[in-house]
Design a protein around this nucleic acid. Structure first.
Lengths: 329, 329
DNA sequence: ATGAAAGCGCTAACAG
DNA sequence: CTGTTAGCGCTTTCAT
């Protein structure tokens, strides 16, 4: 015989007052008699009453939830970002929904819809591969969006990223300045904006230096790095490799080691993201530090002001990255 | 001039029918005239109407959400687990809330409350450090819980874990069988059940073999492993170390390398969890494979049947672990 | 097969 | 200061 959760009415009866009064003490409305308030509080306690947040939201048509849609929480770059989002969201009173898309546009669309149905107050969309038109079409949903790691210039949505292009260029230029000539690039998925920008930066920097670019496209994974690097090594031996993210870089390093070659003596390796393991592995990985946590914090703040009614033009925040030089170069 | 989201009433008007009818087509009620259905669908489409899931839940007092409360998504063990949960939850039609407690009991309690307020249909609680009484007190909330990585024998809640004790024992016994005599243990937080069981297993196995246990307690982190291992090395040189998780193991390996010692020649290192990097690092880490993804899947399934009204006794599922031997031992 | 009306739990005027 | 009442958006009898 499963008993049901007590409602505000149960509390009201027990405290011999009206629902309105209970609602008032719940919302800390100052104009309630101390004695009454005490009675209500007692009743709440005795009944183990917990207010129903969704009924509340329904009643005053607000929402205290935020949706986070990201590619894959299993990719070590995202947990830190997600943590920045979660911490800030809770701090501002929101509860966070989360879902993984595996960079599948179909799934993304489905989850966006699901979040909207859940009446989230706003959505943080990471590394979407949805086309610009599609994303801009989201405007019709009447739900604020914030894009992370991606920006769409004339879009109605706020965004937070680093300057992927410049960061990547700095890496390649540094490698070139250090004397490297045969530098190859192991790129991420071409539908992902950050991957595409890194690749473009690499190509541009190489071309401008009169060097010929060698790029292999794969996914943002360890396996991809392993496979791509082996392919590269089958055809020659670069003196340096710039991987589109740290996972790829680890794969590359292991492929290199697998051939009996050393990092950085034989081949230098540069990654991107600065995930936890970049500093733990041997040799420690040189990489681009992306302020993932801060991106998360910023995204929520943007969303929050948008939800509070900010009707200003879309903001495109660009956070600072930093080259971290360790043992692999 | 911000327009508001269309409601079921807007759709009804536009399709010249009643709310009830719209509701019916929304719920695929078969007895609606094909022509009418088409009109309604058209109206929905034209208005870009998205049904309000929480109003719906309120109306039939159900919930399509699940809450996940875990220590820290930033710890590489959890994303895989979370992914198992997320995938399964969505598959079963639930949307997932998530929050991090950093193993702080206060925060845990607060988040549990928050989830209950959000009317989640159930909660998956990971590695809680709440006392047994406290956890059992949760029963009063009328919300089903599933515990992961922890079980409370006579608790009213379901649980999914591996046999932490036995797994750890197997490791220690193996090390002993290999001839190691001076084996130390770098433990996790003593309030965390899994950490405590691993420690106990280590102590028992050592004692039974007539060896004296040496344990250092810290947190489940890389830094902790680094620090603890250095302390150990300051006082002598074990021939093997059993770390309570892989992160600690990495810290230990780096501390060992820092002293110019080699793994496994000078000191063997054994971890636990088998996170992604265990196989990527040099030397690759020997560890206990914990079926994290599967734990997540199972947890959601248990919760689902509990939410569907299962009134059976609490189930305590124990999944299989496996020793993975790589280069570090 | 469709509509009218009540109600889910809560808040917010509006009275008193 | 407190109670009454009318919704919020949707589902679900109960009629028709």
């Amino acid at each position: 015989m499963k008993q049901v959760k007590p409602t505000i009415l149960d509390v009201a009866k027990r405290a011999q007052v009206s629902k309105a009064t209970v609602s008032r003490v719940l919302n800390n409305n100052p104009k309630v008699n101390a004695e009454i308030r005490r009675r209500v509080l007692a009743a709440i306690d005795e009944l183990g009453y917990v207010p129903n947040a969704i009924a509340r939201n329904l009643a005053n048509s607000t929402s205290n939830t935020i949706g986070l849609i990201l590619p894959d929480i299993t990719n070590p770059y995202f947990p830190v970002l997600a943590r920045g989002i979660e911490d800030t969201a809770h701090q501002l009173g929101y509860t966070l929904f989360i879902c993984n898309t595996d960079n599948d546009p179909k799934v993304e669309q489905e989850y966006i819809r699901k979040m909207v149905q859940q009446q989230v107050g706003g959505i943080i969309l990471i590394s979407s591969i949805l086309g610009e038109e599609t994303v801009n079409g989201l405007k019709g949903l009447q739900t604020p969006f914030v894009l992370c790691d991606r920006s769409i210039p004339d879009s109605p949505f706020d965004s937070v990223t680093i300057d992927h292009y410049r960061a990547a260029r700095e890496v390649v230029e540094r490698l070139i300045a250090q004397g490297h000539r045969r530098i190859c690039h192991l790129a991420g998925p071409s539908q992902v904006q950050s991957a595409e920008m890194r690749k473009q930066a690499y190509v541009d920097a190489m071309s401008e230096a009169g060097l010929s670019p060698v790029v292999r496209v794969g996914s943002y994974s360890y396996e991809s790095g392993l496979r791509l690097m082996n392919e590269v090594l089958d055809e020659g031996r670069p003196s340096a490799v710039f991987a589109a993210n740290d996972l790829i870089a680890f794969g590359a390093m292991n492929a290199i080691h697998g051939r009996g070659l050393r990092v950085p003596e034989d081949i230098a390796v540069f990654g991107c993201d600065d995930i936890l393991f970049a500093q733990m592995c041997k040799p420690a990985l040189s990489t681009i530090r992306v302020p993932a946590y801060q991106i998360g914090v910023t995204a929520v703040r943007l969303l929050d002001s948008r939800m509070k009614g900010g009707d200003a033009d879309a903001q495109h925040v660009i956070l600072e990255h930093k080259l971290i030089i360790r043992e692999s170069t």
